[in-house]
């Protein structure tokens, strides 16, 4: 087995008295793609936010390459640079051009050479088919284009781990594919990723391992074929059925 990159060990997350994550443990190895699925409100976003230290945890530990992630830590910026995150809402900086959105953090946070960063940013934009939009502003882009830029922005920090929180959930259907394709390419190039998604076909295609979360706990975990085709638990079966129902309707049309 390859090296462990991220270790999530028995974490507890509460908002006031509401326990949202109740003893979650899993490891992520270098180059692995983990897909997290589960009903709305089960704590998927919260899990990713804890991993990126946007939320403090009340128990357990999260370690990235042996270093503990702790929101109160002084050295948080160093850790955050190793973890890239793309959110569901289009979260580009509206006052900056596409190129500047991508280059500002490598320049200001990582203090890298601006010329070099720009070259890298343009090369990455080329890869997602947006080289010609480098000087556009976010308001001039479609939702799918914005999400591709957000992915490039995260990539340009050269993170060891990428987190995706339902990045296609707010998109018009015809734009979902272009974003998923970018993520498939990243997986093919060996990126370590944790992906939260409701696109089950995509999950099946991209995942090395699927984690099914319900009510703040890992209910089932396994390779995508076994999970999607032979779910072991009732809860997973029920969850997957909600998607089946949709696909049956589509066939009848």
């Amino acid at each position: 087995m390859k090296d462990i990159l991220l270790k999530v060990d028995n974490i507890i997350k509460r908002f006031d008295n509401n326990t949202v994550l109740n003893g979650i443990s899993f490891d992520v190895h270098k180059g692995e793609v983990i897909v997290v699925v589960g009903p709305s409100g089960c704590g998927k976003s919260t899990l990713l936010r804890c991993i990126n230290a946007l939320e403090p945890i009340q128990g357990g530990s999260i370690t990235l390459e042996g270093e503990t992630i702790n929101p109160a830590d002084k050295n948080l910026t160093a850790l955050r640079q190793k973890v890239g995150m793309v959110f569901q809402s289009y979260d580009l900086f509206p006052h900056l051009s596409v190129l500047r959105n991508i280059t500002i953090a490598p320049e200001k946070v990582q203090k890298r050479n601006p010329k070099e960063v720009e070259k890298e940013a343009l090369a990455l934009l080329e890869r997602v088919g947006l080289r010609d939009r480098a000087n556009s502003f976010p308001r001039e882009l479609s939702g799918g284009q914005k999400q591709r830029v957000a992915i490039v922005r995260a990539l340009c920090m050269n993170p060891d781990l990428l987190l995706f929180d339902e990045v296609t959930a707010a998109l018009d259907p015809e734009m979902v594919r272009e974003v998923l394709d970018v993520m498939l390419n990243l997986a093919a190039s060996g990126r370590t990723m944790i992906i939260v998604t409701h696109e089950m076909q995509f999950a099946k295609a991209i995942a090395d391992r699927v984690i099914f979360l319900d009510a703040g706990q890992i209910v089932e975990e396994g390779d995508p074929i076994s999970f999607f085709e032979h779910p072991q638990t009732d809860r997973a079966q029920k969850f997957l059925n909600t998607f089946e129902f949709e696909s049956v309707k589509n066939h009848e049309k």
Partner: peptide, 29 residues
Amino acid sequence: PVHQYESAEALGFNRMQTYRYIIIPQTVR
């Protein structure tokens, strides 16, 4: 929006940098 702060933080900006490069320029505009 809150996610402007969070995106900046997720990119490794500290508090000061978040205000300087992200929040204040938008507010001023």
